[in-house]
C-alpha cells in the first residue's frame, strides 16, 4: 500500500501501549489494530485529530506516502 501507517513508531517514541492509546482516544482496540496493521481503507479526520492530540504529533508523523515500485 502506498500510504504507510507509522502508528507503532509513534507509540514506541511516546512509550505508550496500544491499549493506553485506545483508552485515551476512545477508539476500540480492534479499530486501532486495523489502523496499525495498515488494513484500514479510510481514516476519519476526527480519529486522526484525537490520535494527534494524544500523541502530540502531526498527521504526517503517523501517515507517510511511499511510491510503489
Amino acid at each position: 500500500m502506498a500510504i504507510v501507517v507509522n502508528l507503532d513508531v509513534m507509540l514506541a517514541m511516546r512509550k505508550m501501549s496500544l491499549t493506553e492509546l485506545s483508552e485515551k482516544v476512545g477508539i476500540t482496540m480492534a479499530n486501532l489494530s486495523i489502523l496499525k496493521k495498515g488494513k484500514a481503507k479510510a481514516i476519519r479526520f476526527s480519529t486522526l485529530e484525537s490520535i494527534c492530540d494524544v500523541l502530540d504529533c502531526q498527521p504526517g508523523d503517523i501517515l507517510e506516502f511511499r511510491k510503489e515500485e
Binding site: I27, A40, K41, A42, I43, R44, T47
Partner: peptide
C-alpha cells in the same frame, strides 16, 4: 460495506 467496516 467493506470500506465502511475498515474505516477507523
Amino acid at each position: 460495506r467493506e470500506e465502511q467496516e475498515l474505516t477507523v
